[in-house]
Design a protein around this nucleic acid. Structure first.
Length: 150
DNA sequence: GCCAACGTTGGC
DNA sequence: GCCAACGTTGGC
């Protein structure tokens, strides 16, 4: 069982959107490293920190769960989608995704500022300088530590 | 809105 | 294979 962190801009798709829809295909990831984590690392049942980025208080706002194995991201084939990738084909899809389902909202946002204030977490990919990955692994120990902050 | 950091593209 | 140009991310 692996643990993950996935970023979303709440204006585009928030934890409340996931709560309402219960499950969602995590489309639009167009970064190879993030894709590889979803394709090669994620398994149904893995737990995910849902992170709000690009907002007033960036931070972890909830828990989700990987609901499917990886499969091709349909948006890459749709010329009308902003995620359309003319370099990809149905025979050989470039981008994959997983479905993610809602587990719960945290009682409060564990903000990026707060995470940064814990020496125990400085090695987290999320807190490393310049990291822009939208999908990344979380150590089991860090996962427990952060959950205990809630 | 700014800009640092970083990934991708494409000319050579 | 190098690297400049460009686009995107995301905190601030």
């Amino acid at each position: 069982m692996n643990h993950w962190l996935m970023k979303s801009e709440p204006d585009a798709f928030s934890i409340d959107d996931l709560k309402r829809k219960k499950q969602e295909a995590w489309d639009g990831v167009r970064n190879y490293q993030a894709r590889n984590f979803m394709r090669d690392g994620m398994r149904p049942g893995d737990k995910v920190f849902f992170y709000h980025s690009n907002c007033t208080t960036p931070g972890i706002v909830g828990i989700a769960e990987v609901a499917t194995d990886a499969y091709p991201d349909p948006s890459q084939f749709d010329p009308k989608s902003k995620y359309f990738d003319p370099g990809s084909s149905r025979d050989n899809p470039r981008w994959t995704l997983v479905d993610v389902k809602f587990v719960k909202k945290l009682k409060r946002t564990i903000s990026l500022d707060e995470l940064k204030s814990h020496d125990a977490l400085v090695e987290m990919p999320l807190l490393r300088k310049g990291n822009r990955l939208s999908v990344m692994p979380v150590d089991a120990a860090d996962w427990k530590y952060i959950l205990a902050l809630e």
